[in-house]
Nucleic acid binder design. Structure first.
Lengths: 230, 230
DNA sequence: TCAAAAGTGTTCGCTATACACCCATGG
DNA sequence: CCATGGGTGTATAGCGAACACTTTTGA
């Protein structure tokens, strides 16, 4: 058992990155969980994650994890907290740099390599392994905070979407209700949406316009500094 | 040289906590820096920090650093980012969990143990060691963000203060100017200040009322959820 | 023809903003 | 008496919240 080839004068913790992957199914906010195959917490669900390699930054590590789980390469990720309680992993001291990712659910081919990965709506998330319940709560809190400064919601929608879909997304994230008409006007007024010529027919009633997120306009706003309220 | 008694199968990074300590001198926002006595970056200024102990959380580590530098025990600290670029320390792989602290400048007995610690106004900060320039920029950005959700500014003021001082603080943090009269009214209207019977005479002109931050009122607001705009 | 959803208008009240005004004080 | 800073008042514009109305469609 002497392949322990790395020696230090002082003890060093292990460092991992975990990734809370959010996706929107059109009605509810979902998170991607993987079922643990080994002890501890065998059989419990947890966020995908793994050890940070010595030649990659935490962000690169999180992107790698994300790719391995979802096949996505250019997703939006954001570091939101580092968890460091001494006994959060019963085996050894583990420090976890946690990210959340916002992905378009429909772009993720369900559970590729990871045999047992699955999407869970926020209100149906089972008890998680380690301190991942707290990680989820923190991720949600930070996402809700972030959405006040950047229109990150668009990362969760397909390229073309209706205002109704955008509203449902915001309602799912913030857990509030908006007046349909006021929301519509506010979005139009903000100028961050580009109306397309296309329409879509989602239901037996009237068809609705499709929109794209206007990145150029957003960059313009961002330079001047702006408020984004909801 | 065989006191390297900690062995691992895979390489482990070192983990430190650094603390960006903000203080307000009545006009400008200041940060506390320490001068490095050893290589690398000997003679350059840097944020106080040190290795995380195996039995303490990052927050405990940051509080310990803060106490060692300022003697303060109950200061407000907040984790804001973890820096993990592989070569940010030329000697070895170091991951830094960074906190900012908000302290009452006047409570800090200048440079106790650390011989060469000193306050620097934000616009007079010299080039820093390692990637601490970026750490400072990130800390400021997060502080400015945080102040939209929590009235953290009060942590930087003495217990009793005038509205003018509060305004100068907000202007220093956010780098903006407010109309004196509108700021006053807004603060009165918010209800987070308790007006004291005492007044103070800061200058040859008219004396001004002193106020305290109303913690009870704040907790009340926080429960119901509220907006804090500036 | 009726229910449901999309798109448009209108009203009201709050608040941010821009000011004017008076009060107190020391030089 | 006047310059300076503190405390209070007032008018306007813009936006958010609430809600009425019209249009389109399939059943």
């Amino acid at each position: 058992m002497e392949d322990l080839k790395y020696h230090y004068k002082y003890p060093h913790p292990s460092v991992t990155t975990d990734c809370v992957i959010f996706g929107f199914d059109g009605t509810k906010l979902n998170v991607l969980l993987v079922e643990r195959g080994i002890e501890p917490f065998k059989g419990r669900w947890a966020f995908p994650g793994g050890f940070l390699k010595m030649d990659e930054s935490a962000e690169q590590g999180a992107l790698r994890e994300l790719f391995e789980e979802t096949g996505l390469e250019n997703a939006y990720i954001k570091q939101f907290h580092t968890f460091s309680e001494p006994h959060r992993d019963p085996r050894e001291r583990v420090i976890t740099i946690a990210y959340y990712a916002l992905v378009k659910l429909q772009d993720v081919k369900g559970g590729d390599d990871a045999a047992s990965a699955d999407w869970f709506p926020l209100d149906e998330v089972p008890p998680l392994a380690f301190d991942h319940d707290m990680i989820l709560r923190t991720a949600l809190k930070e996402l809700r905070r972030q959405i006040h400064f950047e229109p990150v919601g668009f990362e969760l929608l397909p390229e073309k979407f209706t205002v109704k879909e955008l509203q449902l997304l915001y309602e799912a994230i913030l857990d509030v209700k908006f007046d349909r008409r006021n929301f519509y006007k506010k979005m139009m007024h903000l100028g961050l949406l580009t109306q397309l010529k296309e329409t879509i027919h989602n239901h037996p009633q009237r068809e609705s316009f499709l929109f794209k997120f206007n990145h150029a306009k957003y960059d313009e706003f961002k330079q001047k500094g702006f408020k984004l309220e909801f």
